[in-house]
Design a protein around this nucleic acid. Sequence first.
DNA 1: TTCGTCATGTAAGAAGTTACATGATTTC
DNA 2: GAAATCATGTAACTTCTTACATGACGAA
Lengths: 196, 196
Amino acid sequence: MAAAIGAGSRPVAGHSDAAATGGLGAPGYVVLGMVGLGARSGYEVKQMVGQSIRFFWTISPVQIYPSLQRLERAGYITGRAEPRGRRPRRVYEITGAGREALRDWLREAGPMPWELRDIGLVKLFFADTLGPGEAAGLLEAVRRRSEERVAALREVEPVAEAVSEQGDVYPMLTLRMGLAVHQAMIDACDEFARTL
Amino acid sequence: MAAAIGAGSRPVAGHSDAAATGGLGAPGYVVLGMVGLGARSGYEVKQMVGQSIRFFWTISPVQIYPSLQRLERAGYITGRAEPRGRRPRRVYEITGAGREALRDWLREAGPMPWELRDIGLVKLFFADTLGPGEAAGLLEAVRRRSEERVAALREVEPVAEAVSEQGDVYPMLTLRMGLAVHQAMIDACDEFARTL
DNA sequence: TTCGTCATGTAAGAAGTTACATGATTTC
DNA sequence: GAAATCATGTAACTTCTTACATGACGAA
């Protein structure tokens, strides 16, 4: 159908090639950004990612801790040991150089690959192989999945609202994107079901 | 914001763990499905993927050829050498067992992870770090990206229409999904720009 | 005292990517 | 005769994931 679909957007090496993202790799900038927004420990970075950008980016602890070390060596964050009792703990703060590096990354012009991996849509694509009844069941399953996502995102809206009133308005936008995208999928399911 | 976003959808191992997809792995079923839809060689599988499900699934030749061999060993496809002149070439057809295996996979109930990786949205999320002007530029870049996708997808609509009239109606649905999703992102950008 | 959460890692491995190699055939 | 496309791979490498290990703190 469309050689055109990918027009001009050669996939970036891996997901976040250092060369394509200014030397740190996308995960590194995500960690840097979260520290900039107030995450103090690696653990808090993980929490914040799970609570905010999980809809379009994930990261595991295994990537976070080495990233923090690299960022500190680069002078983009400063860390100090702040154990809780005898439990080790290291807290970080972004530096001026770190904030500048983050801004430079945000300003980088290059391509911004949008990569969706969705087994549900793959199955729907082949659904004609099934009978009409079973295909409709698959359609319903995909629809339900998006409804669950919408419900989950709606629960977070008040938090984003609060952040927005503090002056950070863009997290609200990315939340609305998530809502809009899944609502669009639900609507597409409904419209298709009508035409059947 | 939302521990809830991922509610109940533990990420599947890698992207397509064999255990989670009935023994072949998602890429294997994609190849099987494409052969079932008429792709004859590995090369044609690659072409078809690029022209149809590229919006939500990608696959590289390096995965296709081993998949074809595994599928043939499993008895899901039959292959025969059919060189073009002196150039080697192997063409395949799906078997009854293969069609049944594909249907079984489509009927599998398990979770259907929806995974989006989008550097553009990550950058937008952090956009408050920039000044309002530069942030707006980033918003415009994300918007433009979706517009390009919509334009590319629109070009393919006639093909999907034709396929639909041949009796395979679900490819049309997945194409409409792509259009709806990117249009939703454009609309979200516009609405946000108005409220600024 | 037991469970949930905070907190930081190591080890092993799956999956998928780019880059490269090769060569024939068709099209301009 | 050159360029684009058809066609099938190998090799090396990133990236990211799961599974596991460890242990302290706070609340019920």
